[in-house]
Measured scan of single mutants.
Amino acid sequence: AQASVVANQLIPINTYLTLVMMRSEVVTPVGIPAEDIPRLVSMQVNRAVPLGTTLMPDMVKGYA
């Protein structure tokens, strides 16, 4: 199964992502692939992302 990117903490709206904020986990539904974690660093979330939430492409500015 493919691992997705999951929030490792509460990520406030407009926060620039860093490695410590994200982890990879096999979840349903599938979100942003874990292999894209390096690409996500320094990208901004466009909403608050609670701890344990799967990151979806529409949550990250400029990802989709």
Rank of each mutant, 00 (worst) to 15 (best):
M43W: 04
A7T: 12
G62P: 08
L40C: 03
V41D: 04
I11M: 06
P12T: 07
V20W: 06
V30Y: 10
V60S: 01
V20Q: 09
A34G: 11
Q44D: 02
M21E: 03
Q44G: 04
A7W: 02
V26F: 13
I13G: 14
V5Q: 01
V60C: 03
L55V: 05
R23K: 14
K61L: 10
R23S: 06
V41A: 10
S24V: 07
Y16N: 09
S42M: 12
L55S: 00
I11P: 01
V27H: 04
L51A: 12
I32W: 02
V27G: 04
R39S: 06
V6M: 06
V27S: 05
G62K: 08
T53P: 01
N14T: 05
L10S: 08
S4I: 01
L40V: 12
P33M: 09
L10A: 07
A34F: 07
V26M: 06
Y63T: 05
M21A: 06
A64S: 10
T54F: 02
I11N: 00
N14V: 02
E35M: 06
M22Q: 01
V49D: 01
M22S: 00
G62N: 13
M59C: 03
V49Q: 02
V26C: 03
M22H: 00
I32T: 02
Q2Y: 08
P29I: 05
M56G: 05
E25I: 05
E35N: 14
A3R: 11
E35V: 14
Q9I: 14
M56R: 12
R39Y: 08
V20D: 10
I37T: 08
T18H: 15
D36V: 09
P12S: 11
M43R: 08
A3N: 09
G52T: 03
R39A: 12
A1R: 06
A48N: 10
T18F: 04
L19Y: 11
P12W: 04
Q9V: 11
Q44T: 08
K61R: 15
L51D: 09
L51Q: 10
P38N: 15
V5N: 01
M21W: 03
S42I: 03
A48Q: 10
A48V: 11
I37H: 03
T54D: 00
V5K: 01
A1Y: 08
L19M: 15
V30D: 10
V26N: 12
Q9M: 11
G52W: 06
V6F: 02
I13L: 12
E35G: 15
I32R: 01
I11F: 02
R23M: 07
N14F: 13
G31N: 01
V41N: 05
I11H: 00
V60T: 02
T53R: 15
L40K: 00
T18Q: 12
G52V: 01
L17R: 00
I13E: 15
P29N: 13
S4R: 02
M56I: 07
A7Q: 00
V41C: 04
I13Y: 14
V20L: 13
A34Q: 10
M56K: 08
T53G: 14
T54R: 11
S42G: 14
K61I: 14
E25Y: 08
V45M: 06
Y63Q: 05
I37S: 11
L51F: 13
A1K: 09
L55W: 01
R23I: 08
L17I: 12
Q44E: 10
M59G: 04
A48S: 15
P38C: 03
S42T: 11
T28S: 13
L40S: 00
N46H: 11
A64Y: 04
Y63L: 05
S4T: 04
S4E: 01
G62Y: 06
E25R: 08
G52N: 06
Y16S: 11
I32P: 00
R47T: 07
V6E: 02
M43F: 13
R47A: 11
N46C: 03
M21V: 05
V45R: 00
P57N: 12
L55H: 01
T15I: 05
E25W: 05
V6H: 02
G31H: 02
E35T: 09
R39F: 05
G52S: 06
I37K: 05
A3L: 13
A34T: 10
P57M: 09
V6Q: 04
G62T: 07
V6P: 01
T54Q: 04
S4N: 01
P33L: 14
V41F: 12
V41K: 06
V41P: 04
R39G: 14
L51S: 11
P12N: 13
L19K: 05
V41W: 04
E35D: 14
T54Y: 02
N14Q: 09
T15H: 07
Y16M: 10
A3P: 15
V60Q: 01
V49R: 04
Y16H: 10
Q9S: 10
R39M: 09
T15V: 11
R23G: 12
G62M: 13
L17M: 12
V45A: 05
V26R: 05
V26Y: 12
M56E: 07
V5F: 01
G52L: 05
R39E: 12
M21P: 00
V30L: 09
P33R: 13
D58G: 14
S24A: 08
V30F: 08
V49G: 01
G31K: 00
S24F: 07
A34C: 04
V30Q: 14
G31Q: 03
P33C: 03
L51K: 14
G52R: 06
S4D: 00
A7N: 02
P50T: 11
D36T: 10
P12K: 07
L19I: 14
P50G: 07
M59A: 07
P50I: 07
D36F: 11
L17P: 02
I13D: 08
V26K: 09
L51M: 13
G62C: 03
P57F: 06
S24H: 14
Q44C: 03
I11Y: 01
Q9K: 12
Y63M: 09
V45K: 00
L17A: 00
P38W: 07
P33Q: 04
M43A: 10
A48W: 13
V20F: 15
V27A: 10
L10W: 06
I11T: 01
G52H: 08
T28M: 15
L51Y: 13
T18N: 09
K61C: 04
T18V: 05
S4A: 03
L40Y: 02
I32M: 04
Y63R: 02
L10D: 14
P38H: 13
K61F: 11
P38K: 15
K61V: 13
P12F: 05
G31T: 02
G31S: 03
A64M: 15
N8K: 08
Q2H: 15
D58L: 12
N8D: 11
P12Q: 07
T53D: 12
S42A: 07
Q44L: 10
P38T: 08
D36L: 08
P12C: 03
V41H: 06
Y63N: 08
T28D: 15
M56N: 05
R47M: 07
M59L: 05
V30K: 08
Y63I: 06
R23C: 03
A7S: 15
P33T: 08
A34R: 07
L19V: 13
M21K: 06
Y63V: 06
I11W: 01
S42H: 15
I13C: 03
T54K: 04
M22I: 10
R23N: 08
P29D: 06
S4V: 02
G52A: 09
L10Q: 15
S42F: 06
M56T: 10
P38I: 05
S42K: 12
P57S: 11
N8V: 14
P33S: 08
D36A: 10
L17D: 00
Q44I: 10
T28W: 10
V60F: 05
P29S: 06
P57Y: 04
T18R: 05
V26E: 07
I13H: 11
P50S: 15
S4M: 02
N14A: 06
S4W: 02
Q9R: 05
L17C: 02
Y63E: 04
M22A: 00
L10C: 04
L51G: 06
V45C: 03
P57A: 10
A34K: 15
G52K: 07
K61M: 07
V49M: 04
K61W: 12
M43L: 09
V5P: 02
D58K: 06
A64V: 13
Y63H: 06
M59W: 12
V41Y: 06
D36Q: 08
V26T: 11
A1T: 10
L10T: 12
V6A: 04
M43K: 09
A3I: 11
I37A: 14
P38E: 15
V27C: 03
E35C: 03
S42E: 09
V45G: 00
T15A: 10
Q2V: 13
T18M: 15
R23E: 05
I37L: 14
A1L: 15
S24W: 11
R47D: 10
L40E: 00
Q2L: 09
P38Q: 14
T53W: 09
R47Q: 15
V30M: 15
T53I: 14
L51N: 12
N14D: 15
R47N: 12
L19E: 14
L40M: 07
V27F: 02
R47L: 13
E35I: 07
D36S: 14
R39Q: 12
R23W: 04
Q9N: 09
L55T: 00
